[in-house]
């Protein structure tokens, strides 16, 4: 068995230097709930593991100046759950993250890892897309920002450049009457991977939807931002016609495959069904009466 080098840098700068020095032979370890499984199955054989959980920027929960949040990419779902404010502003993001795995896994798994794993079925990702979260990325050539929906490049791939590390997510401030929700379809009640996942974030003013974003997972090579669905909701009172239109937009956006987890026909139909159910939950949370 070949040896694996384990590094646990204390600062972001050290991490970037070590990651660059490994020249592509290193893998980042946040919670490890995907990485270790992939290593055990023989899918990945990294020569260096770079543990990023000791870096302050990756494990901080901060309020931004405008009232939003900045969340370290390596924070576990269980840790984020304990924050007194985040779940009130972004219940959909939190529920999506904490649908992943068992209680033990939730103590390890992070949003950053879920996004960088590149799976179109990652539960946190559609909720992050719906939330309009922005990823802060740092590499040898400095810092940059990417919208979450622009991070995945295909199954198992991201648009991060060699040497870049995902540092944190920035969530915008929430106007009054805003909330979000995430639902996924799995055949069982637990211990499963999304066949379709839908995240909806919206704002209601006097019964009218003034802002909305829809993220759709597991129906295309990457998680999708479904702008047509959002357009159908914005300006409406979330009446049946608007919801139907948004659901149809979700189904239309699907570009799925037939595989062991679901058929094309099934995923396409279920995307619309889940849009309706997720929107209803988000609207209720946003205070619709």
């Amino acid at each position: 068995m070949s040896d694996i080098r384990y590094l646990a840098p204390q600062t972001l700068d050290d991490a970037i230097a070590q990651y660059a020095a490994a020249e592509g032979a290193a893998r980042i370890l946040a919670g490890g709930t995907d990485l270790l499984v992939q290593m055990r199955s023989g899918l990945l054989k990294p020569s260096t593991i770079l543990d990023v959980k000791k870096i302050p920027e990756l494990t901080a929960i901060e309020r931004t100046a405008d009232g939003g949040f900045k969340i370290g990419a390596a924070i576990s779902g269980a840790a984020l759950e304990e924050d007194p404010d985040f779940g009130k502003a972004w219940p959909g993001v939190l529920e999506a993250l904490n649908l992943i795995g068992s209680t033990q896994v939730q103590g390890r798994a992070s949003m950053g890892g879920n996004l960088c794993n590149g799976s179109p079925a990652g539960d946190a990702v559609p909720a992050l897309v719906a939330a309009g979260a922005v990823a802060t990325i740092k590499g040898p050539n400095g810092s940059r920002e990417l919208k979450v929906e622009d991070v995945p490049a295909g199954p198992g791939k991201t648009n991060l450049k060699p040497g870049e590390i995902l540092v944190s997510f920035t969530f915008p401030a929430r106007p009054k009457g805003s909330s979000d929700a995430y639902l996924r379809m799995i055949p069982r009640t637990e211990m499963d991977i999304a066949v379709v996942g839908v995240g909806v974030s919206l704002t209601l003013e006097g019964g009218t939807c003034t802002a909305a974003r829809v993220g759709l997972g597991a129906v295309a090579p990457t998680v999708l931002l479904v702008e047509d669905a959002a357009k159908a909701l914005i300006g409406s009172t979330l009446d049946d016609a608007a919801i139907e239109k948004a659901a149809a937009a979700c189904s239309a956006a699907c570009n799925p495959i037939d595989d062991k987890r679901g058929t094309i026909a099934y995923r396409t139909k279920v995307a619309g069904v889940l849009l309706k159910r997720t929107t209803a939950i988000a609207a209720e949370r946003a205070g619709r009466t």
Partner: peptide, 29 residues
């Protein structure tokens, strides 16, 4: 009755050789 099945791919290989995609009921089911 509900979810257990062997799924074969076109190459004649089992495509779900584990408890994630070979779905036995879990307790909460």
């Amino acid at each position: 009755a509900l979810n257990e099945e062997y799924i074969y791919n076109k190459k004649g290989q089992v495509d779900n050789p584990g408890f994630l995609d070979y779905r036995m009921p879990v307790c909460s089911d």
